[in-house]
Amino acid sequence: ATTLRIASQHAPDQYASEVLRQIKTDLEGAGVDLKIKLYPAGQLGSGEQLIGEAVRGSIDIVHSFVYSHKDPVLEINSLPYLVSNYDEMEKVFSPGSNFYGIFDQRMDKMGLKLLGVTAEGFIGVMSSSMPENYQTTGSKGQNIRVWSAQSAKLATQDMGYNTTTIDWGDAFPAIQQGVVDGMIGATPEAAYTTFKEAIKNYVPYNAFVENYAYYASKKTWEKKLNEEQRKVIAEVFAKAAAGFVDWSRENDAANLKKLEEFGVKILPLTDAERSAIAKEVRAKTWPKLEERLGKDILEKVIADL
C-alpha cells in the first residue's frame, strides 16, 4: 500500500481532527490501496515548518494555516474583511472563486497542491471593559492585543483600537491582568474554551476568518500516487473542506450562546453595521497592503464579493 503521512496543527479533540480521522477512514476504505498515518497537534512542527517539509516531500499532506513567509501574496488569507458573512465565506473559500484560484496557483508555484480551504469560524474582538462606538469604526478607547501581522495590526487600528502585539500564549494573562483591554484573534469557540474567565464582552465583528488549508506535496502528488489515488484524494478532501462553512455557521452561533450563558455579554451588530465597517476597512486598510500583495490581486479578490 502507499502510505501517506498527514500532519495537522489541531488538538485531537477539535472538530478538524475528527474530520481528519474520517478522511483517514474514507481514504483507506476507498479501495485504492492507501494507508494513512496521522500526526496531529503540531507533532511534526509549526505551520511554517510543515510547508517546507511538504515542498520537500517528507510529509505528504498537511492541514494547517498557510503562512506567507515563502510568498507574501498568500497573505490574502488574512485580508481583513475578505468576507464578512457565511454566504460570502462559502463563495470565496470554495473552488471557482478568484480567491481560490489565486491561492491554488500560488501554492502550485511553491510546489504544493491545494486540496481545499477550510474556514473554521469568524474572528471577533473581546474585551474586559466596555468599548465606545463599537458599532462603527470610531475610536474605542481600548488598547487590544493583535497577533504579529501587518494586516491584523493595520485593520484593527482602522477599526478604532489601539494595538499591542502579543503572542497567543501570553494573551490570556495579559487581558486578565489588564496589560491590554482585550484582544482580536479568537473565534467564539476559542473565546469560550480559552478566554471566557478574562473577558466581559465579545463583539462578533467577523473581521477575519480562522482559515486553514489542506494541501499535498507536489512530489507526492506527481510521483508517489497513481491517477486513481489522486482522484479519490481530491474528492475526499474537497468534500471535507466543503463541510466546514456550515459547521462554522453553527459552531460560531453555539459558542456565542455558551459565552452568553457564561456571563459574557455579546454586543450585537446588525448586518448593515457590520457591512459598513467591512466596507470602510476594505477602503482604508487594503490600499496599505497593496504594495505587498499587488493591486491586480486585490482587485481580483474584490471582484468575488
Partner: peptide
Amino acid sequence: SAYPDWQRTTGLELPF
C-alpha cells in the same frame, strides 16, 4: 537559491 522569492518574516520581511 530561492532569491528573489526567498523566505522572509511576515512582519518586517527579513530574509531567513
